[in-house]
């Protein structure tokens, strides 16, 4: 009788333990997915902002047609990208084109005084920051998740319910690694 009770208690404890770890895994996986979708949202937002930016700046920067073309081209490539590698390459190119543009803007004091442009610029700066912070937070979440799936004892439960390790969001080129420019 006593043995039975002990066995039952151990089984109940084990089940509670497994449920706890399973829920933790689910929570972490959802956080990973959520961070990933954040990156997506911000990339899309960047695409939406670009026509606005080009439209505002065009009147002031007559001689910079090449820059605008580079941005527009990178944008349409990024929007048309089919695979993840293609997309990350195109987004990288777009980021580079934009940071080049932001450097050129320094030479146009009229444009920098334009209220409309300033607000578009603030939105764009913020979106660039959000992309990099979303990427940072995604990698953090992936680290937590991977740790949980690989460490004992949670790796047993992860194996039982086939939680697989996720990949980090690595950067394509060295220039991409730099901080998004913050301007005032």
């Amino acid at each position: 009788m006593l043995a039975l009770i002990i066995i039952a208690a151990v089984v109940v404890l084990l089940i509670i333990f497994v449920i706890g770890i399973y829920n933790a895994l689910i929570r972490l996986r959802n956080q990973v997915d959520n961070s990933w979708s954040q990156i997506d949202v911000q990339l899309k937002r960047r695409h939406d902002l670009i026509p606005n930016l080009v439209e505002t700046a065009k009147g002031y920067m007559k001689h910079e047609r090449g820059t605008f073309e580079a941005i527009t081209k990178a944008r349409s490539q990024a929007m048309g990208a089919k695979t993840v590698t293609e997309a990350s390459k195109a987004e990288g190119a777009l980021g580079e084109a934009l940071s080049k543009f932001m450097l050129i803007v320094e030479n146009y004091p009229d444009l920098k005084a334009n209220q409309n442009f300033l607000s578009v610029q603030e939105e764009l700066t913020s979106t660039e920051n959000k992309i990099s912070f979303a990427r940072q937070s995604y990698n953090d979440q992936v680290l937590f998740f991977n740790n949980k799936t690989q460490m004992f004892p949670s790796n047993i439960i992860a194996g039982m319910f086939s939680f697989t390790k996720r990949d980090f969001f690595e950067l394509e080129s060295a220039t991409e690694r730099e901080v998004p420019k913050v301007s005032f």
Partner: peptide, 9 residues
């Protein structure tokens, strides 16, 4: 925007 950035981060 900054609050949003930090919330994402």
């Amino acid at each position: 925007n900054v609050v949003e950035e930090m919330a994402i981060s």
